[in-house]
């Protein structure tokens, strides 16, 4: 098994708080990998450190056998990134954004133009191509962001929450493109907390909790005979049963409360 991504003891702290406490992430080449974990588990921090956007306090990250922090030129040519928060050049149009992104990587203009038009077509963004990114909806931003990440044909693609806030139609477009991408032998790693989606798309799962990898491997192995959702809750420690105390007024059975004089205040 060749590894597309391999980290050893990746570590990051912010002041007192340890965000990532020694992550050993392994993703085999050609896999569609999901990085799952609750909010605050350190998924974004880990992805930022692997893609060279955030300096780790310790450990190392290797992509395609190349150290991210020692050989950045080689690594950056091989990775495509869609970071969290949809941070894009807002005052460029979708088409201009793709052109900029391609030419920044020294791809000839003619080639960039051809790839841009094809990507805009596949992403169903032709009509909005000349509108400014600042006016795009969330789904359109995710799609143009993914197009920008794919434009230089990377071998490993890192996506942070690519499906968050995306409508089903756009999500379908995104998954189609990504599945075609991995079918050709390239690697996709995306973070998410939508377990159904991860279960449907991924063949490799890494589960993060509180800055650690708590489980990692092929989907079937991590899941066992449970659903991925149940497996995930078991691994990260599901919610403590709140019990039946409190919230008695909530729902149709609490209708008596409507007549109580305390509700409503002065009128």
């Amino acid at each position: 098994m060749t590894e597309a991504v391999h980290t050893q003891g990746l570590f990051k702290r912010y002041g007192q708080q340890i965000a990532v406490a020694g992550v050993d992430l392994v993703v085999p080449a050609g896999s569609f990998a999901g990085l799952v974990g609750p909010n605050g588990a350190g998924k974004t921090t880990t992805l930022s450190m692997i893609t060279g956007l955030l300096r780790p306090d310790g450990g190392r990250a290797v992509i395609d056998g190349l150290d991210v922090w020692r050989d950045p030129v080689q690594v950056k040519a091989r990775v495509g990134v869609l970071p969290e928060g949809l941070r894009l050049f807002e005052r460029l149009s979708g088409r201009e954004l793709l052109h900029y992104n391609g030419r920044l990587r020294a791809i000839p203009m003619a080639e960039v133009e051809q790839r841009t038009e094809e990507l805009l077509g596949v992403m169903d963004l032709r009509e909005a191509a000349d509108k400014l990114v600042v006016d795009y909806s969330t789904g359109m931003r995710k799609k143009i962001g993914l197009a920008a990440a794919l434009l230089h044909n990377p071998s490993v693609l890192f996506l942070d929450e690519p499906f968050e806030g995306v409508d089903p139609v756009s999500a379908n477009t995104l998954t189609d493109v990504l599945q075609r991408f991995t079918a050709s032998g390239s690697t996709v790693i995306f973070s998410s907390h939508v377990m159904d989606l991860v279960e449907r798309l991924c063949d490799w799962v890494s589960v993060m909790s509180a800055g650690h990898i708590v489980a990692q491997g092929p989907l079937a192995q991590v899941r066992g005979d449970r659903t991925l959702n149940q497996a995930f809750l078991d691994l990260v420690g599901g919610p403590k049963r709140a019990g039946d105390a409190g919230l008695t007024w909530l729902g149709a059975n609490g209708a008596a409360a409507e007549e109580s004089p305390s509700a409503g205040g002065e009128r």
Binding site: L53, A77, R87
Partner: peptide, 15 residues
């Protein structure tokens, strides 16, 4: 002014 979108340059330039 690039602000949060500067990552796009950062991931493109390796040297």
């Amino acid at each position: 002014i690039d602000g949060r979108s500067l990552w796009m340059n950062t991931v493109a330039f390796g040297d």
